[in-house]
Design a protein around this nucleic acid. Structure first.
Lengths: 161, 161
DNA sequence: ACGAAATTGCAAATCATTTTCAACAAGGAG
DNA sequence: CTCCTTGTTGAAAATGATTTGCAATTTCGT
């Protein structure tokens, strides 16, 4: 897809600009990252990359993700879990998250009002805001229903918000 | 302060209700927690507690913080750092955070509009929202000025947002 | 006061992530 | 195209925050 290509290009430029080299491994990782679903963990990305090139190590995935962040192409997020999940940078398509604390489902949303709010708060307090993270925790429709019926927990372990 | 007392009481009730025991150590830790500034890490709380009772271990601080969370009296948050910071539960006084990515300053704020936004999004997507976290990242007034003047970094290491 | 059950502190274990290091590859100079 | 400097890689070890195993100790209902 063209969108992905543009990003690959941006990453390539970042490497050059920073005096870094472009390698087969890095290429595989960034392609897999752009192709992956959102909210992937380093481990998940590693498995995807591994599927097409078993010689690539987890360490390289971590290192490449760090570069993607420095290039402004990825953002790390920590929801309730112990590990970090990565998203394509929010600059392109700002979005926030709704996390079901019962089944672990993550739903994205966008809300224009938030940007106004953000600016208003920033102006009031003298900050210059460059980025934000908003997470709403609760129950998705299904889990809300189950809870109401007093069912015991199922699915993956919920995390404290 | 009365506010703190009410919380101590709530914690005591939680312990009883859960069939747990109240101990000198737990008491010291929860008191220190309520007395502490916001955003304390387990380590920081440990040092405070240690000052008045050197026999208390870091492990107990962790365990007590976990209980406080279960009791709904504390919330864990992860800003850019690698460790968790703890806040008195947001149910009492909802607040969000502005984090300066340059000097690390954390400023709190409250905004009523956010609650509306939260409900609106929840309704649209069929979620039941019980809690949220909003973090704005950027530069505080001082750091924005320094950046403008092209000064090199100082203070504690900034963390990626 | 008794005794079952919870708690404590320490050391060791986890887990995600980072660093070390020796072997290896990229890419500009000649 | 070859050389050579410098960046890169993977495996293993290190790190740092948090958790768990365990034996000794404490709490609290009876």
């Amino acid at each position: 897809m063209a969108d992905s290509d543009a990003r690959l290009q941006r990453f390539a430029e970042f490497l050059t600009r920073s005096g870094l080299k472009s390698t087969r491994q890095r290429d595989r990782v960034v392609r897999a990252f752009f192709a992956a679903a959102r909210h992937v963990s380093a481990e998940e990305l590693y498995h995807r990359v591994r599927a097409e090139d078993p010689s690539i190590g987890l360490v390289t995935v971590y290192r490449t993700l760090k570069l993607l962040r420095e290039a402004g192409l990825a953002t790390g997020r920590q929801f309730g879990d112990t590990y970090t999940r990565f998203d394509p940078s929010p600059a392109d398509r700002p979005h926030d998250h709704l996390i079901c604390t019962r089944c672990g489902k993550i739903q994205e949303f966008q809300n224009a009002g938030l940007l106004h709010l953000r600016e208003k708060v920033a102006r009031t307090l003298g900050f210059t805001v460059t980025e934000h993270k908003l997470e709403l925790y609760g129950f998705c429709r299904d889990c809300a229903r189950l809870n109401r019926h007093g069912a015991s927990r199922n699915g993956r372990a919920p995390r404290a918000a």
